[in-house]
Write a protein that binds this DNA or RNA. Structure first.
Lengths: 213, 213
DNA sequence: ATAAACACTGTTTTTTATAACAGTATATAA
DNA sequence: TTATATACTGTTATAAAAAACAGTGTTTAT
């Protein structure tokens, strides 16, 4: 079977995420909105190609009739029971490389929606307005995009931080949930642009207990 | 949570099967076809009722916008290691009586300091300033006193709520962590005085995931 | 006896989503 | 250089699905 092109993979990823978050697949128009296509046919032709490569099944004439092949979905879910807590992320290494893992959080992944999950220690008060405090452990699902306005884990240098992410016409805006923090804005052209590494799924707070986490 | 009626259960079963077989939920018309309803409204009203009972989530205006909530918790099994989530507390019954237990949170007690733990659904915004949001699951250690200024679970009537507790010279002051909420003050003599039932240990937040917790 | 919840019928309107057409521009390989 | 595949724009038509009314019986609890 032929492999997906980069663009096709992006679209496929989006559909997988959407399905997991919503319980049903995106409509062609929702895909179009997300990628900003001017024409509905852009989506149609992409879907046809992805379908030909066997990763989805299209049900003609049905609204939202995109069936994601289950193999793809289960691939995304990791079999390990515990959620790894990731510390500083060594440059060039994948996020979940062993040397980045600080600890393991022994709670069921299903609680946080399943998928490829990891956790981060929250440092600082930049997200207090979202109820995320210094010392909390944030649960993140690994993915390279988030919906506009969602909270994402963003890699800035070696550290991952949580910010509300807005991607608009070539510029990336990272908004802290704290009135005293200014937004960070990056242009697509800039060399040192941050990378979205996951989507905020929730937190576990054991603060004040001197816990082992 | 109220139980489904026989008819509602039939319809819910159909949706679960359809979702499993097709990867996306049925449309209202497909449900109608299957059951042979003469009116589309038959489906609509059933869905509304099933949604009210929490087994599905309806996305208004979206084709096929039925989100089935899989009972993640029951799939995960219930061991005695799990932390029980307590709902309304029947008068006179001990807090952890079986009829008070809504669900089980399958995470290790050691994470929250061990001891006799239970959990509460947080309702309302009275503790936002402490980073405790509506919908969070608060972990409580059962005990009948807390240190001055600590956050405690307090039984007011049938419901347990979180408040910062101050006990000074015969009067009990319950302070919400929200500037718009007034403190509650009780004298020891008052008949309807609230009872401290535990100490706040932390939270688990899975909000926005449509989880069953 | 009377409400309240349940399980529907019947009709019309509006919104959402897919389909079908005809094109353009670019890279890559034969 | 000539296909061939990819990655789209742009327009219009049509089907699918949801929503918004106003109703009718029936059971169940008070």
């Amino acid at each position: 079977m032929k492999e997906l092109t980069a663009r096709q993979a992006e679209i496929h990823d989006f559909m997988v995420c959407w399905q997991r978050d919503n319980g049903f697949p995106p409509s062609q128009e929702e895909i179009r909105d997300h990628f900003g296509f001017a024409s509905p046919n852009a989506v149609r032709s992409h879907l046809a190609l992805i379908a030909k490569k066997g990763l989805i099944c299209l049900n003609a004439g049905k609204a939202r009739g995109i069936q994601l092949k289950t193999s793809t979905l289960s691939e995304m879910g990791s079999s390990d029971k515990s959620i790894p807590i990731v510390g500083t992320i060594a440059a060039g290494e994948p996020i979940l490389a062993e040397q980045n893992i600080e600890n393991l959080l022994p709670i069921p992944r299903a609680l946080f929606g399943g998928g490829e999950l990891f956790a981060l220690h929250v440092k600082g008060d930049s997200m207090v307005q979202a109820g995320i405090l210094n010392g909390d452990v944030a649960i993140i699902r690994k993915q390279s995009h988030v919906e506009n306005g969602e909270i994402g884990a963003v890699l800035l240098g070696q550290d991952a931080t949580l910010k509300r992410v807005f991607l608009t016409s070539g510029s990336l805006r990272l908004k802290a949930e704290n009135p005293t923090c200014d937004d960070l804005v990056y242009n697509e052209s800039s060399i040192e642009s941050p990378r979205v590494i996951g989507r905020y799924q929730g937190i576990v707070r054991t603060s004040g207990l001197g816990s082992v986490l």
